[in-house]
Amino acid sequence: MTEENRETGRLIGYARVSTGGQELHSQIDALKKAGVPEKLIFIDKASGAKSERPGLDSCMQELQAGDTLVIWRLDRLGRSLKHLIETVEQLMERGVGFRSISDGGIDTTTASGEMVFNIFATLAQFERRLIQERTQAGLKAARARGRKGGRPKISANDPKVKMAKKLSKNYNISIGEICNTLKISRATYYRFLKIGE
């Protein structure tokens, strides 16, 4: 990095599309228009839900203190709201700024943008706490009515359990075929075989 870059920092871009059939042109054009050099734009063609994103991994390794990560829209970066906030918080701890082009108020390199992000993070934390409280209240109410949480027990007389046991004795049928036929996972198949033993 040059002395000038150390002082002003670099703009580094990240773009993602969910499938190979989608195009990245509009995102890349928007990043270039925002001042990101094309050689510093990292890309992925993968679902946001996937944890493996080599382009994002390379982007994170490239980023240094003073740099700013620029994305086209918030949903291009995070697998979920929680993951997005954790990622941006990690960048801020490393001294890296964050800017979303389409979500104008999100720019941690400005005081107002950082405040917007902090409000965003606080609302997400508030939502998580509400969900936890509702879950706990629901479990408490269920226990008061004599119900226990967790998966309901399956009896040895359940038709799927009987069929799984019967098919397991036919060595011409693979476990995968049995699971597909009964629409169950392998873990469930093995659990069914233990029922009643």
Rank of each mutant, 00 (worst) to 15 (best):
T2W: 02
E4Y: 10
R6P: 07
R10N: 10
V17P: 06
G21R: 15
G21E: 14
Q22I: 11
Q27K: 04
D29T: 14
A30Q: 11
A30Y: 06
K33Q: 15
G35Y: 07
I41W: 05
K45Y: 10
K45W: 10
A46L: 06
S47A: 08
S47M: 05
G48C: 04
S51Q: 13
C59T: 04
E62G: 02
L63V: 02
A65V: 08
A65S: 12
G66Y: 02
V70Y: 05
L74I: 12
L74T: 09
L77M: 03
R79E: 04
R79P: 07
S80T: 10
S80V: 08
L81V: 13
Q90I: 10
L91H: 02
R94F: 01
V96H: 01
F98D: 09
R99A: 02
D103A: 00
T108R: 02
T109N: 00
I119E: 00
L123V: 11
R128S: 03
R128L: 03
L130M: 14
R134I: 10
Q136E: 15
A137T: 13
K140S: 15
A142P: 14
R143N: 14
G146F: 05
R147W: 09
R147G: 00
R147L: 13
I154H: 00
S155D: 10
N157S: 13
N170F: 02
I175P: 09
I175V: 15
I178G: 04
I178M: 01
I178D: 01
L182I: 02
K183F: 05
T188G: 05
T188N: 04
F192I: 08
